[in-house]
Design a protein around this nucleic acid. Structure first.
Lengths: 190, 190
DNA sequence: GCCGTATGCGTACGATCGTACACAGTATGT
DNA sequence: ACATACTGTGTACGATCGTACGCATACGGC
């Protein structure tokens, strides 16, 4: 009891902070990426979002709802980038290049996203409730890929992307970017 | 206090149970696969292994050591199967078939292993301490594959296997086994 | 300016956890 | 047969968690 949150100069953080809920969700993703789902607690998220502990149960009906909303936001964001990159390509060859860029930049370049993906995968692998989220995510990826590839190839390519991500996250030694290019090339050749 | 563990008919579980430690490790893997790393506690593992709580801290210096040993055993086991299947193949074509079989049977057929893999991946993605484990595991897979494929192809193929595993674990709808065959075929064609 | 009402929060409770440690039980050397 | 050393365990402690709930605060009608 003492130093409350009286953020900045505004009188009180009280009523006029409509995106409090959004900030909590973003903070939650930060905490997950640093401490894992298991190490994510209401208290840590509250501290990160700079809101009082009581706000957690006020805005969310328990930890599950918070996690589900956080991962939904994450998956949607990643999915959007994916879809946009695919839409920008105008033929199969450009699409192949887009996939390579996506892997090398969006995936390999973002450690936070790599960790968050795995946290979500693990959750979904064990609890069917989160399966809907990953299933939808993958369906969207496939749809994006199917703008340029046949359905079968789209699924294989999607799997390859995931596999390369894992190797990147779990293997310490650096890899030749050209290898990604070659792999994409091979898997998309019918 | 009351019903201790006096297992079976033997006088006392006391001194004559040399594989207690092994049983704890196996029990730990069971608990992880059912509750996740986050939900794995000394108490649950002890109950599963049918040993008293005090045995946990007696045989292991804390939770970390237990987890590390458990995952080491798991990764070694999976790795062994992988290596053995590759050794059995006598040419590239047989090797391709061996990989397909491995994916369809050993990976797709074992939900427990699928979950455990992801739990380990997630741990390793966030904590470098576990990275040594996954790095060694992957190195061994690559070595096994390099008996029949060039190093570059071996790495791509290994990545593909991981990717297909993920899709299997995270996508609800069943897949055509032939798709696996085609993907392996494409990625191994230079 | 006052008051009812909805919004948001400080705090405390019960549960559960990892871990330490005093002690019980067994084997061994004599 | 007894003393001694070692192996294994029951239990209790401090920390930390999610969550509920009484209360403070700000808003809107009058």
């Amino acid at each position: 009891m003492a130093d409350q949150q009286h953020r900045g100069g505004t009188r009180l953080g009280r009523r006029n902070d409509p995106d409090r809920r959004d900030r909590i969700i973003d903070a939650c993703l930060d905490v997950i990426s640093r401490h894992g789902v298991s190490g994510t607690t209401h208290r840590k998220v509250a501290a990160q979002a700079d809101v009082p502990l009581g706000a957690m149960t006020y805005y969310f009906d328990g930890m599950d709802e918070l996690l589900r909303e956080a991962f939904t936001r994450f998956a949607t964001g990643v999915s959007d980038v994916f879809a946009r990159r695919m839409e920008a390509a105008s033929d199969a060859q450009e699409a192949r290049q887009a996939v390579v860029t996506l892997i090398l930049e969006d995936v390999f370049g973002d450690d936070r996203a790599l960790v968050l993906s795995h946290e979500l995968y693990t959750l979904a692998a064990r609890e069917p409730a989160y399966r809907a989220l990953t299933t939808a995510w993958m369906a969207r990826s496939r749809d994006a890929l199917e703008r340029h590839f046949d359905p079968e190839t789209a699924r294989m390519l999607d799997a390859l992307i995931e596999g390369l991500s894992i190797h990147r996250a779990l293997d310490d030694q650096a890899r030749d970017p050209r290898e990604v290019e070659i792999a994409v090339e091979r898997i998309t050749r019918a």
